[in-house]
Design a protein around this nucleic acid. Sequence first.
DNA 1: ACGATATGAATGAATG
DNA 2: CATTCATTCATATCGT
Lengths: 218, 218
Amino acid sequence: MEPQQHPQQQMQQQQQPNEDSSSSSNSKSNFLCRQSSTRWTPTTDQIRILKDLYYNNGIRSPSAEQIQRISARLRQYGKIEGKNVFYWFQNHKARERQKKRFTVDMAMQRGTVGAGSGGGWKPEDSLHNKYTSINPGVCSPSSSSPGVLGVGQMGSSGYGSFLMEKSFGDCSISGGGGDSVAGSISNNLGWSGMDPYSSSMYALDNKRNWMNGAFKED
Amino acid sequence: MEPQQHPQQQMQQQQQPNEDSSSSSNSKSNFLCRQSSTRWTPTTDQIRILKDLYYNNGIRSPSAEQIQRISARLRQYGKIEGKNVFYWFQNHKARERQKKRFTVDMAMQRGTVGAGSGGGWKPEDSLHNKYTSINPGVCSPSSSSPGVLGVGQMGSSGYGSFLMEKSFGDCSISGGGGDSVAGSISNNLGWSGMDPYSSSMYALDNKRNWMNGAFKED
DNA sequence: ACGATATGAATGAATG
DNA sequence: CATTCATTCATATCGT
């Protein structure tokens, strides 16, 4: 998710590069081994790629085929199923919107509250940050790399959003001064010839079983 | 180690002039930004209001609009953002339910699991209680709050002491979106005999089966 | 100071 | 697509 505006990097150990189900870590005080977290824990690489697809490729609601490809590619970095990819995009998109929904306005309010305390969530998108000072506490220090980059072309709803949200700890794309180019992972899923507006072709919706046997872990 | 028991809420949340920029009691504010608490620390007034809304108004999952209003109102008592309100309700509700469930779990758990080391139960079993009777029971309308509430009209306010989930004010869920396939594709699609599960019966209604029968959770 | 608990924040999964 | 539930992480706070 993105709901966070604090200039702080909480290095969550959310990445677990073990494509195996033998996840050892987990909680700290677990006497009983909680095998299988049941829940997919994306690895850093997977997240990176997903974000890349989301932002750089504008993919928001991948179709079944895309999901298949994506999950296939992501599987190299860890265990993953189609539904994970599906949910990821759904959630990412939803939260982005939701956040926006809560926030709404609150810009140009300096004066009422006095300190002009940003009363919103993360006005990253904002219409036009006319007054950047609306958010005095938003300094993002840290780190690294913006990793932002322009969005290519989206075919979906024609969003124009580019809120990059955090990219602190989990090293988003981009190397920021080192080697590695941000474009490494970019589109590579195989749709080498068709990235365009293919996204809008989904027709599923009510039926989610479109990937019944198609996916599943082998 | 998971959160548990302690059916009591500590009201000793001392006020914290967030908007202040000088004396930040936070020793870890290594960032130049003032007020880098990383985490929202609700003031007593805010808590009071939130609880009032939660218990007296039966608000459990405020909609986006409500969240906006609430946060706007709470902002008077200290810095707060929409997401804070959102999370607060989510957490409050979740913990309440969680606690209750644990109690029940414990009650029926007379099997001496042995995990009670140090009074630590393990939510390992976790029954899959689909729906729990949302029985607040703990309603403590000690709302002596002065100008509390009045965040707006939540619409229905027939609460009393009953459960009342989802009390939306005016959520207008409109379908029709940008993408949406032009339609037509639906139904049959021509790939005849392709999905055995689809359809037909409603009676048994198959859940989304990503795992293809791997799971079973009616 | 440390350990336990309380609680804010984040996110995968699921349902409507 | 929106909303919600469950889990888990991270940290503030309190108790001893």
